[in-house]
């Protein structure tokens, strides 16, 4: 069966919460209401003509105006597969890092979903209601925030170890080599002047929250790079 027939089958069975089939992209998908994901998946798994034995993936996708949770299921017996999606529109107010959409967990229907849901909670902050063991999976338990969110604020320290705030992450650097050169030069100057290595970035910094909690007042405790000559100039020395 292709996606069209599967969608027809689902709507024919009268499963609650079923939405439309979207065929605009290369991969069609079926939109499902949050409350309908469990009955739909149960039906797909148990119906002899569908027989979706395997759940491949649970994915959270954050977009401008919404967060989507996608489920990829497929059948080994009938060689067909289907993508289901639950959509959460972003609320008008407060729809940022602290907004955690909730969707019913399917870990008891597909045990495979257990770890996938934990990962989506860990990285995207999607709550799976009724999950047996909702802990972080990849990040440490004490981690704050969900790093795959677009407005995730990078921490200034972790476990008492200050993270390098001066360094521009490679993926933020992009192809702008001039900017990197500028940063490197500024660092070199700073080092020659003997100023403390870690300082809050300039107010015009475009990186969100960067250095917001930087311990600027702790001059005495920080490592101070001695202005010795012949120093390497690639900014490695910040990694104390």
């Amino acid at each position: 069966m292709n996606e069209q027939e599967l969608h027809g089958k689902l709507s024919g069975a009268g499963v609650a919460g079923l939405g439309e089939l979207d065929t605009t992209g290369p991969d069609p998908f079926v939109v499902v209401e949050g409350s309908g994901i469990r009955p739909v998946l149960s039906f797909l798994r148990d119906d002899p003509t569908c027989r979706m034995e395997m759940l491949h993936l649970v994915t959270g996708i954050e977009r401008e105006d919404r967060i989507e949770v996608a489920y990829h299921v497929s059948s080994l017996e009938h060689h067909h597969s289907l993508t289901l999606k639950v959509v959460f529109p972003r609320p008008e107010a407060g729809g940022h890092d602290d907004w955690r959409p909730g969707v019913p967990s399917v870990a008891d229907i597909y045990p495979a979903a257990d770890w996938h849901e934990r990962e989506q909670w860990d990285l995207l902050g999607i709550e799976f209601e009724g999950h047996p063991d909702m802990r972080r999976i990849l990040l440490p338990d004490e981690w704050i925030g969900h790093p795959l969110r677009k407005d995730y604020s990078y921490p200034s320290e972790h476990g008492g170890i200050p993270l390098e705030l001066d360094a521009v992450p490679m993926y933020e650097r992009g192809p702008d080599w001039e900017r990197e050169e500028k940063v490197r030069k500024a660092k070199k100057e700073e080092r020659k002047a003997g100023t403390p290595l870690r300082q809050p970035p300039a107010p015009g910094s475009d990186r969100p929250h960067a250095g917001g909690q930087a311990p600027a007042s702790s001059k005495g405790q920080r490592h101070v790079i001695e202005p010795h000559s012949g120093d390497d100039d690639d900014g490695k020395s910040g990694a104390h």
Partner: peptide, 27 residues
């Protein structure tokens, strides 16, 4: 648009689910 591709890796099915919104990098 979005694409999900599965491949038979030595360890099992490797899938990449790429979602594009028209930019130079996937979202």
């Amino acid at each position: 648009g979005e694409a999900y591709v599965r491949c038979e890796n030595p360890r099992g099915e490797l899938g990449f689910y790429v979602v594009s919104e028209g930019g130079t990098s996937p979202i």
